[in-house]
Design a protein around this nucleic acid. Structure first.
Lengths: 248, 248
DNA sequence: AGCTCTGATTTTGTATGCAATATATGAGAT
DNA sequence: ATCTCATATATTGCATACAAAATCAGAGCT
């Protein structure tokens, strides 16, 4: 792009105080969108130059991305954008099903009137925002995250809450909402309605079952539309040095 | 492949090539041992000087420790050793019970003869190393980690495996093995025997139940001997600037 | 031609200096 | 005496320079 030394190329959306977190968010979004192809090498110097910062915050951002599973980072070899195999995706959804169904059961046992009001409000707003292909994917997934997040919080177990939210924040999952068709959206909204009812009535087992089905159905949508051809993400191959970097 | 089938870093105590990981391991051990009291402030400069490195690797180590929950790290305020409340501990054990019981069930469905042999070998060695108050706490917890780790791997879900291992690697848990009395050790060993049997026979529900009881009983030992008086770890209070730093 | 070894280049890892920011201290006013 | 505000100090955050390591290229040899 243009090399004009603007004060900040990165969109300073939330007035993030540190450059490190700005770089982190920018890279995370880029990777989620798919700007950098799977397996492409992210060199600190190039990123630093393109973002008009030094290598230090870039380096910190890459380490953070590695800890969250967006890139693999081997010593002296650099960062490679991590790919997601079908197995990886299945693992994530299965893990979410296990954890979130348990959280839903606990939420049903601990629900207050305020909790129900919050969940109903979120369900209402999601229904209002639902369109054939989702118009505002970001907004919808944000509300969906809040809905699940509130149930997780209601479980009273912060560890469960954090683990499940981290699983929801994985890049390839965020992208998957674009794949939702009309009936997928409708079913998802219906699930949410049922969840609120089950939780409101203290039906822990029912809530758990709905949540489990809800998460696994999303996995099915993902599996159906995701043509699997990418690399296995976990096994670290010796990275080839020269890799065509798709984005830029 | 008997010892460490994991690329996870808790096991490899060989001198790591990078200074950053050396500092990380050193700090992690120090925090686990309790050298730095809960809430004490870790300043980059002081640590760098005491370890004869620059601030850069110390900084990276602190960030990594923060991502793993050993310290809290607020933007311009620095790193504080994180405390564990009784609620935190309970959350961890409950989460482990949920995840690992599911993993045990899956392991029972997927067990091979090799798996059983490995688990039996580990169980044997743990019985050989068991003493009244555990003599070699580190070795015992290492074998215990391998035992649970292999069951987790047998589940076939890498995400479950990593999440549960991370929960097992938390500092206050590692320390908790010192609290095990004779009967606690005996019960734990008996649990392991039963687990191997249930998994060998493909009894998924039984394996899950044993694992759940096994983990929760450890929680009970921890709760019984851990006099709760420490701070709440999650809620971030505005950190006071001057805090007596116990260790060095 | 294919292989190996050695230099050249690129990239990561570390050290250091400077700037930004939060906290601490003290003076002054109420 | 207490509170507020401004200055001082210490610490983090960032930039740059240098060192170490790994890959890449090419010459020389088999």
């Amino acid at each position: 792009m243009a090399t004009t030394p603007l004060k900040n190329d990165i969109a300073d959306k939330k007035t993030n105080t540190t450059a490190s977190s700005r770089v982190y968010e920018a890279l995370r979004d880029e990777i989620s969108i798919g700007t950098y192809g799977v397996g492409s090498r992210l060199t600190e110097g190039a990123l630093a130059k393109s973002m008009n910062v030094s290598r230090t915050p870039v380096r910190e951002a890459l380490h953070r991305l590695a800890s969250e599973g967006f890139v693999t980072l081997s010593p002296h070899a650099g960062a490679l954008v991590k790919g997601w195999s079908a197995q990886d995706a299945r693992d994530v959804f299965e893990t979410r099903a296990i954890i979130e169904s348990e959280a839903a059961a606990r939420a049903a046992r601990a629900a207050t009137a305020d909790d129900i009001a919050i969940l109903e409000d979120l369900a209402n707003r999601m229904e209002g925002a639902a369109g054939a292909p989702l118009r505002d994917v970001h907004g919808y997934s944000e509300m969906n995250r809040n809905f699940h997040g509130h149930i997780l919080r209601m479980s009273g177990n912060r560890r469960i809450e954090n683990i499940a939210l981290n699983l929801m924040d994985l890049g390839f999952l965020v992208r998957s909402y674009r794949l939702f068709g009309q009936e997928d959206v409708n079913r998802s909204l219906s699930d949410h309605r049922q969840l609120v009812t089950a939780i409101r009535d203290g039906e822990a087992d029912w809530a758990a079952a709905i949540m489990r089905a809800h998460v696994l159905s999303a996995a099915c949508v993902f599996k159906g539309t995701h043509d699997v051809g990418d690399t296995q993400g976990e096994t670290e191959r010796t990275a080839p040095r020269k890799i065509t970097q798709r984005g830029n």
